[in-house]
Design a protein around this nucleic acid. Structure first.
Length: 721
DNA sequence: AGAAAGGTTGTTTTT
DNA sequence: CAACCTTTCT
């Protein structure tokens, strides 16, 4: 059911949006506040380029943050009656540069059927290397190494450049593992996520003619969510845009929430310096939220130092007040949320899909699920362990990967004894030796192992069976459809029996997942432009749970604030607003990190269209222990004039109606102009106040020693009044 | 070789 | 409180 729309430049766009759409040439930065119609601007710009300027779609590159965003844009383009956009490059950075790599892989020594390793695969590679070096993964944590390697790759640091302080043994281990890791991936024809961006950069610098080809091809480049691009993405944009210099980036510095993943907020802050003669637009009208929601969000985010000044405004009414609720513990919080939703559905005739419950960490979903279950309220959890990361799914995908690319040792080892076929640790160890001695891959080692005298008859028999199985499917893949292939495979290896045998309460769900995979594959097979087995594997690697989430489903949506980026809901709950959880404890120590947490809260709050609920618990179960918690500093920061409060304090006093909290009452004593006494510096007056809460700092002008900035916590100042 | 039991570890957010 | 890894038992 395709809804066909006529494009109406005047009616569909505000005058300022239209100006941006029609300003096509040269570098453009659009600072677009939350809910100001970013997606609309980009889609209409694409339409404008094609229809009004006659640019062929295949000469426009549009980069988004999620596949979902790209799909939505495509859908909108599809709804425009007269628009033909076949050939348009639209998708995430990762998927588009993966596409480029499929074409150019041989330039970096890869075959074009490369496989993409996810975190689990990467960890397996790292573990294997650590053990090969003779370390124990007890002393050398694979996860730490993984983080360090990822950090380096995010910052475009190669293993050779990886700096080691010569006294730091750990760092030199990281470096060595890093070097081996890169070699391993290459020799197994696999990339990790970072490689999808890094390798194109390598290709472009080594082969200027290839770069030229793409520079010429892409006359116009459009980028969404620019505030979350990292160094590699930024480098790619610079390289590709050089020829035509028509690059339009859209973003909002207040919504930059991926710093931990290497995103550089400076990319957006310094755009004007890096792209000379850039035209800057600011869109401050918000079309999404009520005034109350906007004011609250704004009152929070102004506490950030490192931001561009913006003043969001809205033509909507004030709307309902924000509800702030404090609860005794996390169980009560989840029940309260479920009950609020029920009430709203009953009173205001809202639908389940109008609600989203957001949280800081995935682990919080479980307690919410329990509460929803008790209240028999349907819900979907988006994210967490993604569908394609579930064990039963990865096992099947492991087979498919090996069928496509037998060099993939990691997946080969994953499935070689699943289902158990008598190929255990000892046999695998022997094959590794054989492979190394003969200079062949692990798969090659299996072939030799079948003939080898060093292996017992039984193992050789098992290996032979396994090898025959893989060979059979490698042949079969050319003869039957992908969907039939996987069905036959699932049948032959007896997954159904295997899962049933486990006999756990999750077994049924796991089997359902397998069936869901089969139907996903058959859907994929039906698409006319499908890329066969390799295409499916690629899609799966780059797929996220949000991409698959259906927003019309009759269920409440539960997800992290990160996942909610770019989405909107009539009613939004932000839960777990406690010091240490949101902001998360790892990020409470430095200013930049706190600012990112604050932006995250801002992103969450601005998802709401009509009504926002904020809640926190005074006790929460973590690590199997119940901890007592204080409410988030962000709650203290927001302007309470638009908030209805219903609070339980730690001392069970009711703070209803009061404008500030206990923490704040202490702070209130310190105001600009107040006279204070310090033990050493003597008398002075407060001239400036920075931060509130735990890290509150004051600038005091002392009579004797002049101005000093003091951290209130340690200063021991006395106010004299 | 494989299953079952026991101990230890750790949770941030994700393309 | 799990998930994960190691050890122990069959």
């Amino acid at each position: 059911m395709k809804t066909v729309k006529r494009l109406n430049w005047e009616k569909d766009l505000s005058p300022e949006q239209r100006e941006i759409v029609e300003h096509t040439d040269g570098p453009i930065l659009v600072i677009a506040g939350a809910g100001s119609g970013k997606t609309r601007i980009i889609t209409y710009k694409i339409a404008y380029l094609i229809l009004k300027k006659g640019i062929p779609p295949n000469r426009i590159l549009t980069l988004t943050f999620t596949n979902k965003a790209a799909n939505e844009m495509s859908e909108r383009l599809n709804s425009f009656k007269t628009l033909k956009y076949e050939g348009l490059w639209i998708g995430t950075f990762h998927s588009k540069f993966c596409k480029l790599l499929r074409r150019e892989a041989k330039l970096v020594g890869y075959k074009n059927n490369f496989f993409i390793y996810d975190e689990e695969d990467q960890l397996n590679v790292i573990k294997q290397i650590i053990e090969k070096f003779g370390y124990s993964i007890k002393t050398i944590s694979p996860k730490t190494i993984y983080r360090k390697i990822n950090y380096a790759k995010n910052h475009l640091i190669s293993p050779e450049e990886y700096a080691v302080k010569d006294w730091d043994r750990y760092d030199s281990i990281v470096k060595n593992v890093f070097i081996e890791y890169e070699k391993f991936l290459k020799s197994h024809n696999a990339f990790d996520f970072n490689d999808l961006l890094i390798k194109p950069i390598e290709i472009f610098s080594a082969y200027p003619s290839v770069l030229k080809k793409y520079q010429k091809k892409f006359k116009y480049i459009l980028v969404d969510e620019f505030q979350d691009t990292n160094l590699a993405q930024y480098r790619l944009l610079r390289l590709i845009s050089q020829e035509n210099n028509n690059i339009c980036v859209v973003g909002d510095d207040d919504q930059s929430i991926y710093g931990w993943r290497g995103a550089e907020i400076s990319n957006i802050m310094n755009f004007e310096n890096n792209f000379p003669n850039a035209k800057i637009f600011k869109v401050e009208q918000n079309y999404r939220s009520t005034k109350n929601i906007l004011r609250l969000a704004q009152s929070l985010v102004v506490n950030n130092k490192n931001r561009m000044v913006k003043n969001l405004w809205s033509l909507k009414e004030d709307g309902e007040k924000i509800t702030l609720k404090s609860l005794k513990d996390d169980k009560k919080e989840s029940l309260w949320i479920a009950q609020c939703i029920k009430k709203e559905i009953f009173k205001r005739k809202k639908k389940l899909c109008d609600f989203a419950v957001l949280y800081r960490t995935n682990a919080q979903s479980r307690i919410l699920e329990e509460g929803f279950y008790k209240e028999s309220l349907p819900y979907v959890v988006v994210g967490g362990i993604g569908f394609y990361k579930r064990k039963e799914i990865k096992d099947i995908l492991g087979y498919l990967s090996v069928i496509s690319n037998p060099d993939d040792e990691i997946n080969l080892k994953r499935i070689i004894n699943y289902p158990p076929r008598g190929i255990g640790k000892t046999t695998i160890g022997k094959i590794e030796v054989i492979a190394r001695e003969n200079g062949v891959s692990f798969y090659g080692g299996i072939k030799l192992g079948i003939e080898s005298e060093d292996l017992p008859e039984r193992s050789r028999e098992s290996l032979k069976m396994f090898h025959t199985l893989i060979k059979k499917y490698r042949l079969l893949r050319r003869k039957i459809s992908l969907s039939e292939l996987v069905r036959t495979l699932v049948d032959e290896i007896g997954i159904s029996k295997l899962i049933k045998k486990e006999g756990t309460k999750e077994s049924l769900g796991r089997w359902e997942n397998v069936m869901e995979l089969l139907s996903a594959i058959s859907d994929y097979s039906k698409q006319s432009d499908n890329g066969g087995l390799d295409g499916f594997l690629e899609r799966v690697s780059l797929f996220t749970d949000v991409d698959g989430w259906d927003n019309r489903q009759e269920a409440v949506t539960l997800m992290t604030v990160h996942n909610a980026k770019g989405l909107e809901f009539s009613t939004v709950f932000i839960s777990g607003l406690e010091e240490g959880l949101f902001p998360l404890y790892n990020y409470m120590n430095n200013r930049d990190e706190i600012e990112e947490e604050r932006r995250l809260f801002y992103v969450g709050a601005t998802r709401a269209i009509d009504k926002l609920y904020l809640s926190y618990s005074l006790k929460r179960m973590r690590f199997g222990e119940t901890k007592t918690l204080k409410c988030s500093r962000f709650i203290n920061e927001i302007d309470k004039n638009f908030v209805d409060m219903d609070l339980v304090s730690a001392t069970t006093k009711d703070y209803r109606g009061k404008k500030s909290f206990e923490i704040n009452i202490e702070d209130e004593k310190y105001k600009i102009g107040k006279a204070v006494i310090h033990e050493i510096f003597g008398n002075g007056r407060i001239v400036e106040i920075e931060d509130r809460g735990e890290f509150m700092k004051v600038l005091v002008d002392f009579e004797v020693v002049g101005e000093k900035k003091l951290l209130l916590k340690y200063a021991n100042l006395k106010v004299i009044d």
